[in-house]
Amino acid sequence: MSDRLKQLSDAGVSIWLDDLSRERLETGNLAELVKSSSVVGVTTNPSIFAAALADGERYDDQVRQLAADGADVNRTVFELTTTDVRNACDVLHDVWAATGGVDGRVSIEVSPDLADDTAGTIAEARKLWDAVGRENLLIKIPGTAAGCPAITATLAAGISVNVTLIFGLDQYADVMEAHVAGLEQAAANGHDLATIHSVASFFVSRVDTEIDSRLEKTGADAALQGRAGVANARLAFEAFETFYATDRWAALEASGARRQRPLWASTGVKNPQYDDTMYVVDLVVEDTVNTMPEKTMQAVADHGVVAGDRVRPFYDDARATLQQLAAAGIDYDDVIDVLTREGVEKFVTAWQDLLGTVQASLEAAAR
């Protein structure tokens, strides 16, 4: 067991792996990470599946069977990805049981093509939930304008949700409102609120990438670079604590509801000049999740310094950072709009790559 990762876990941060492949499942790699690296969850996205299937011979047998059954590319992708996620849920079942459902979670995302389609998102969330058939599943839905009502409806149906692609504080406020509204409707629908879980994936490194680029173009003080992502996330946690301290939430909590934990996503450092553990160790606070690429996890295990709560004591500093960025000409709202749009576009591109890879595999199997 890595001492540094255990320290992170002991500080109240749930460590989730931001990756999944059939190789990880069949070789026992995922099970080993759960055993030795404090991993208690898994997140996936179209980019992860595209990479896994692009060089994954372990998918060939299932592809051949699906081709023989006459499956088209969309059904094949659905079957391949839900199979991996179902098996990952089984690997993490004991963690799920031991933590009362808080951890041991595996996420699968609705098609990025549905980012602006509320009804389509709701329908696919149900389809994925039923296909995987595991209580420790989370359905990933983007926190877009069309996504928020889908989040509410999905939670209202008793389905657990991972809200993804959250970049801005106003956007995050909408996501938390969608969560609470969903639980209120779930209670009205007769669901046991204790069984419905949710996390809110707040992206970190991409904020720095976009803002650093703008700072460089304006010739602003270089000391402001690499500070926005962490500051933004810290203020998100402050908003989380404030939102879930209301009488409205207390009424739901009394009925068994659980807060929607912040999940720090996009925690791999993009700028090699930055500390490769900064989006982990600088965001340590209890009741959060940090989903990491394995490279980032290994860096934390090797040299990450876990130094207690690195969020609550820094609220004023975070506000000052955003004020300094505004004074330097950074339009926060425009940054968030650009990142949200690009986030959807990147996942759509990865989804098309995934479809292309699987189509080629189907054609090869038919020869």
Rank of each mutant, 00 (worst) to 15 (best):
A223L: 07
A188T: 10
H93C: 10
N29K: 13
R86K: 14
A350Q: 10
V358M: 03
W249Y: 15
T267M: 03
G12I: 09
A186G: 04
Q323V: 11
P112G: 06
L155R: 07
V199D: 00
A50L: 04
Y172A: 00
I139Y: 01
A222E: 15
Q323I: 14
M278P: 01
D174A: 06
A318Y: 08
F49V: 05
Q324N: 10
R86C: 11
L53D: 03
G190T: 08
K127M: 14
D276N: 12
A251Y: 09
R367K: 15
G356D: 14
Q260R: 09
A71V: 10
L183I: 08
A222Q: 12
S36L: 14
F203S: 00
V280E: 06
P112D: 06
A188Q: 13
A178D: 00
T340M: 15
D337I: 08
G308H: 13
G304A: 11
Q260L: 02
L354P: 00
R126A: 15
R105K: 14
D60E: 15
G120Y: 07
V110Q: 01
A150N: 00
I151R: 06
A200G: 05
T82M: 11
D170C: 01
K35E: 15
T76C: 06
C89G: 09
Y279F: 14
L322I: 12
R134E: 06
I139K: 02
L355G: 11
A119Y: 03
A131H: 11
Y332L: 12
D61A: 15
L252K: 07
R75H: 10
L355E: 13
F78K: 13
V175E: 00
D94W: 12
L283E: 07
V199I: 14
G28H: 04
E79D: 15
L339I: 04
Q323M: 11
A365S: 13
L25M: 11
A145W: 05
Y315G: 01
E253T: 08
S2V: 08
